[in-house]
Amino acid sequence: MVQREIRMKIILATGIYPPAIGGPATYSKKLADRLTRSSHDVIVVTYGNKVETEKWKVENVLLGLPILRWWKYSKKLKEVGKNADVVYAFSSISCGIPIILSRLRCKRILRLGGDFFWERYTAMGGKKGLREWYRSSRWQLAVSSWLLNKFDHVVFSTDFQQQIYKDAYKNLPKNSVIENALALDQVVPMEQHFLKKQLRLLFVGRFVNFKNIPLLIEAVAQIPDAYLTLVGSGPQDDALRKQTERLELTTRVQFVAPLRGKEKFEIFGKHDLLVIPSLTDISPNTALEARSVGLPALLTEETGLSEHLRSGIVIADLSTPQKITEEINRIREGYNFVSEAASKKIEGRSWEEVSKDTEDLFATICV
């Protein structure tokens, strides 16, 4: 058992931080809170406007052209990172490069919840999932390998992504898995869903290419009595609205701005099925949030979701509109069985557990 009584100076390097919305923003703030409670000296470095300082320091770097902002970020790291024990980065590029430029002499740890180069590939129209893309990439692997090996340790959020990297990189740094927190407090009551006359489908997430939302809209066009709510925002927003108009689905596809907290959980209760047809979805927390209140989910087979969390979630090949349509109709036919499975309680994972695992890792590496 690792002794965690050591007081450390910890730099959390993130690209975004609340009030910005996103995984790294939530993660860095929650982790900063728990690490501070454990008497560690925590400093968060982030891009964006100045934010109100809490029990820990939050240092901001204004956005600008990539090279300029990386240099400014590296200067901020030098400024606050003197005598630091560890710097924990939440992005391989926007935080990783400044860490390299800063030449901080502390231990460097990189947390990967996504994949920068693959996401850029999909943003440019690429259609391969993460696993398939890694089998065909070459120069990106060389660049990524150089970057990864500037860190002492890499933390993955899933076994799924860790295994892909182990297969792809011959000289991957020491690595481990620290699963994300899964806060499943009952914001609204858990209940079994029953089909109404109309089929109410839901998507919640960022409007980006790898989420494959256009295929879902095309599938809805093939199911005359299906209605779809798209909750989120992102660079694909205009294209999705134009697609909806082109397919004459404006009365059956509704767009809703991003929701948080109770409002997000309440919208789960107004729908019959959450559909996530991503090319790859490494950590599909939205599917688990839906499950926590009894909403069945249909999820891409290219996922990092752990086996013990898959009950009540249908995993399938959703690579074409036809396959999405077939799976939705199949779930519809056996809906009572699927919704009963989705109404059974699943175990969450607290931020205290995440913080403990992280502290143990830091203490081990910094010894």
Rank of each mutant, 00 (worst) to 15 (best):
4 R>G: 03
7 R>T: 12
14 T>C: 07
16 I>P: 04
17 Y>C: 12
18 P>D: 03
23 G>D: 01
25 A>R: 13
26 T>L: 03
26 T>M: 02
28 S>P: 00
28 S>N: 05
29 K>M: 13
35 L>F: 06
40 H>R: 00
43 I>Y: 00
46 T>Q: 06
48 G>D: 09
49 N>A: 11
50 K>I: 03
56 W>E: 00
58 V>C: 03
61 V>Y: 06
66 P>W: 06
68 L>P: 02
72 K>N: 15
73 Y>L: 03
74 S>H: 09
77 L>A: 04
79 E>S: 14
79 E>L: 10
83 N>I: 11
83 N>E: 15
83 N>L: 04
85 D>T: 03
87 V>S: 05
88 Y>D: 11
91 S>R: 12
93 I>W: 11
97 I>R: 08
97 I>F: 09
98 P>I: 03
109 I>F: 05
110 L>T: 11
113 G>L: 05
114 G>C: 05
119 E>H: 03
122 T>R: 08
123 A>W: 11
125 G>T: 09
128 K>Y: 13
129 G>C: 12
130 L>G: 07
135 R>N: 12
138 R>W: 12
138 R>M: 11
139 W>S: 14
145 S>G: 15
147 L>W: 05
147 L>Y: 07
149 N>C: 13
149 N>E: 11
153 H>Y: 15
159 D>R: 12
160 F>Q: 02
160 F>I: 04
166 K>R: 14
166 K>Y: 08
168 A>Y: 10
169 Y>C: 05
173 P>A: 12
177 V>Y: 02
178 I>N: 07
181 A>K: 01
183 A>F: 11
186 Q>K: 14
186 Q>W: 09
190 M>N: 11
190 M>V: 07
198 Q>I: 03
204 V>Q: 01
207 F>E: 00
216 L>H: 05
218 E>A: 13
220 V>Y: 01
226 A>T: 09
226 A>P: 05
228 L>V: 04
230 L>I: 04
234 G>M: 07
237 D>Q: 14
240 L>E: 00
245 E>R: 10
247 L>T: 10
250 T>P: 04
253 V>W: 01
253 V>N: 01
256 V>S: 08
261 G>H: 04
263 E>I: 08
267 I>T: 12
267 I>N: 00
268 F>C: 00
270 K>Q: 15
270 K>P: 01
273 L>H: 03
275 V>A: 02
280 T>Y: 04
281 D>A: 04
281 D>C: 08
286 T>D: 10
290 A>H: 07
301 E>W: 10
304 G>C: 07
305 L>E: 13
317 D>P: 09
318 L>I: 10
318 L>T: 04
319 S>Y: 07
320 T>Q: 06
324 I>A: 02
326 E>A: 12
327 E>K: 14
333 E>K: 02
335 Y>T: 10
335 Y>C: 06
336 N>F: 13
338 V>P: 08
339 S>M: 05
342 A>C: 09
344 K>M: 06
349 R>L: 07
351 W>T: 10
355 S>W: 02
